[in-house]
Design a protein around this nucleic acid. Structure first.
Length: 714
DNA sequence: GAATCCGCAGTTTTT
DNA sequence: CTGCGGATTC
């Protein structure tokens, strides 16, 4: 297959880039992944680069999987040796090999946000600090995500953070780190920080890894944080063959310390970097793109870029003003019912809390829907309980997990017993499990604890030679956990979740394979958005692949990178989009605007915007008004619809003819044409009455369709 | 030690 | 409104 012929001029240029740094500014729907995949194939085929020298970093495991799949299709078996991974997975993989060089214990586990929160809460409680754990986690993340560490934090933070003096916050941070390491655990941020530490202290290891990453691609570069930036720099080295791909207009993870400046100043950070701009948009109609462009133009933190439609014309954007959130949801359900073909439709919102009403109305209307990434599957209590058994078996030092399972299901080992045993552990300087072994010296009725220790020892033994599925089944058998669940109010659903976990474990064994410890690693690095989606119809978890014709519900953040023929973007109102917590700072407001932009650019054909003038927040009624961002939508591209009308179909209040404001003529991107003077060429983009054509003879030309006298060649 | 009840805080987004 | 933690009761 020809690597270039199916690409437009800008994409080709990017693909042909060989050595040195390059920035690919890839607008929404501009064929970004395609370009990266083709470039890798080009390196392999035309430049004779070994697959074992190429690293591609993506933002999610899902994206990594998709890229790998596409590469396999293009280059076949060679793809097996490529390194395609997220930052975190890559770091973990390195630390599994070299972790001991930076003080990690062999079986260390990765704590997720939940565990991080639990640990933090305990420390705060021990110190009698009245701080909000939620806020405190943000502080912790900040310290860990911005390189400067505690020193910088103490220098630059205000005197009080999360309700406590910053010196005390720093103390909590130290205790937290100590507790983590003490039980052989690392958190998400540690993965990257320790990788950096490893590289800086052991240049020989860095040199080795660099061999494996002579050509580096970083996708979604606009979402990298300072730590990831540093890691990239280290890997790229003195002579960086580094291609970063991204779109500052889609930078929406600032709250997680992603720094949009990483992409904005790439050409300064990497002198001599080439810049390629992918602006031809293959996804959306001209109308939708014009709206998107008009909205994002208002931002200041940008790289100049305008999306150019390949598709023509299109319907106007529809706006529905609902008297309240209930009516808004009802409108969405009615419109969807009217349209049919649910699989093409997505409903996007700013906050997860908004999904509830929508779910309810869709269910009532009998519309099948799937909820992406809401209540994390791996965050459910019953799932975490079972996995805690696995974690203890793999890493007996994991006290957090040990405490979780010690009385789950209830086996007569209550809080006071555990308290005594932990105190003993502390005093003796031994691990919690060791203290459990000495139960008869500590408590008066040690039988239950002794039985529990036997169970744990059995499981530790089993963990050596048992796959995840069988291991989990064994836990169920030996603990009688299922029976306990059955007695609970929503036991049936919980049991279904347990079954789903077993199924997931079985699938993993088939598709990936490995030890129980590997399985835990996979789970730790899987984001909720990548999990099996939740079916709204029956409330149970099912295989997302199994379904087909379902409406997709998700947050704007989760929608990045996806596209749908029909998109409903709901809650376009003040305090929600932009969110109330983002109103005071300009940077935050701009990020909210980018979120709006991301939402708009998900739509291929039809875009609905809606908001509610009244909405219940925490059961309290609140009044709101339309989002300030709506003012930036060109009025002539907006069409207001009403809920009233026969059969409940949306009725256009101000019917305006859907004029083809920018007729595209007959040309489409990729088509071959002949020009009277320039000869044969390929259409790169068609924007309104103007087409951009690449001619081998003279390069890129912008031509007016009307006058150019272009002829299509078949 | 376990079960039940009450009060209050929390929801912005997540690798 | 929900879910969690703490207090109260069995």
């Amino acid at each position: 297959m020809d690597l270039l012929s199916s690409l437009n001029e800008a994409q080709q240029q990017a693909v042909l880039h060989f050595e040195g740094p390059a920035l690919v500014v890839a607008g929404a729907g501009s064929g970004k992944t395609r370009t990266v995949v083709h470039r890798i194939a080009y390196l392999l085929r035309e430049r004779r680069v070994y697959p074992g020298e190429i690293l591609a970093v993506t933002f999610t495991n899902k994206a990594a999987g998709e890229m790998k799949e596409r590469l396999e299709k293009m280059v076949g078996g060679l793809a097996g040796d490529l390194w395609v991974s997220t930052f975190h997975s890559a770091a973990l993989r390195i630390l599994r090999v070299y972790g001991e060089w930076v003080g990690l214990k062999p079986g260390f586990v990765v704590y997720d946000d939940d565990d991080q929160g639990t640990l933090l809460k305990e420390i705060l409680k021990d110190l009698n600090l009245e701080a909000r754990p939620g806020q405190f986690r943000a502080v912790l993340d900040r310290i860990k995500n911005r390189l400067g560490g505690v020193g910088e934090f103490l220098r630059e933070a205000p005197d009080f953070v999360a309700g406590v003096p910053k010196e005390q916050a720093a103390e909590v941070f130290h205790l937290y780190q100590k507790a983590l390491r003490g039980q052989g655990a690392v958190d998400f941020n540690d993965l990257l920080l320790l990788a950096i530490e490893l590289f800086e202290e052991h240049p020989e290891i860095l040199a080795k890894v660099r061999q494996r990453a002579r050509f580096i691609h970083v996708d979604e570069y606009q979402d990298t944080n300072p730590v990831q930036y540093k890691l990239t720099r280290l890997l790229a080295g003195e002579k960086p063959n580094l291609v970063v791909v991204g779109d500052p207009d889609q930078s929406i993870y600032g709250f997680r310390n992603a720094d949009i400046n990483n992409i904005l100043s790439f050409t300064k950070d990497y002198p001599g970097a080439k810049v390629f701009r992918l602006e031809a948009n293959y996804r959306s109609t001209a109308a939708i793109l014009e709206v998107a462009n008009a909205v994002i133009e208002k931002n200041t933190a940008r790289l100049e870029k305008t999306l150019r439609p390949v598709k023509g014309g299109g319907e106007k954007v529809r706006l529905f003003r609902a008297p309240n959130a209930r009516e808004e949801a009802a409108f969405v359900a009615r419109e969807i019912a009217r349209r049919g073909s649910f699989g093409q439709i997505a409903v996007l919102y700013r906050t997860n809390a908004q999904s509830r009403l929508l779910e309810e109305h869709l269910r009532r209307a009998g519309i099948p829907a799937r909820l992406v990434g809401a209540v994390g599957f791996y965050e459910r209590r019953e799932v975490k309980d079972l996995l805690a058994y696995a974690r203890v078996a793999v890493n007996p030092l994991d006290t957090l997990s040990l405490r979780r399972i010690v009385n789950t299901p209830p086996r007569g080992i209550g809080a006071s017993t555990v308290g005594k045993l932990l105190e003993y552990a502390q005093k003796q300087g031994i691990s919690a499990l060791e203290a459990f072994r000495h139960a008869q010296q500590v408590i008066s009725r040690p039988q239950q604890v002794e039985a529990f220790v036997r169970l744990v020892d059995d499981l530790i033994e089993a963990a050596y030679d048992t796959g995840p599925r069988e291991f989990l089944k064994r836990v169920l058998e030996e603990t009688g956990y299922l029976e306990t669940l059955r007695a609970e109010p929503d036991g049936e659903e919980r049991i279904a979740n347990v079954e789903e976990l077993l199924r997931a474990a079985g699938d993993w064994e088939e598709e990936v394979g490995g030890t129980l410890a590997d399985f835990l690693d996979t789970i730790a690095l899987t984001a909720s958005a990548e999990e099996p989606a939740k079916r709204v119809q029956d409330g149970k978890l099912e295989d997302p692949e199994a379904g087909g014709d379902e409406v997709t519900l998700m947050t704007l953040h989760n929608a990045k990178g996806l596209e749908f023929p029909v998109v409903f973007l709901v809650g376009v109102e003040e305090n929600l989009l932009p969110h109330r917590n983002s109103l005071s700072r300009l940077e935050d407001l701009e990020e909210e605007r980018r979120l709006f932009y991301v939402g708009i650019t998900r739509a291929q054909e039809t875009l609905y915007l809606s908001y509610a003038e009244e909405r219940e927040v925490y059961g309290k009624r609140e009044y709101t008004r339309e989002s300030r961002f709506l003012a930036d939508v060109p009025p002539e591209l907006l069409e207001e619809v009403s809920a009233f009308g026969s059969a409940g179909a949306a009725v256009v209040i101000r019917p305006a003819k859907v004029e083809e404001k920018k007729p595209l003529g007959a040309f489409k991107g990729g088509e071959k044409v002949r020009h009277p003077r320039f000869g044969q060429g390929t259409v790169v983009a068609a924007l309104g009455a103007e087409v951009t054509v690449h001619f081998p003879s003279v390069g890129l030309k912008k031509l007016a369709v009307q006058f150019a006298g272009l002829e299509r060649i078949d």
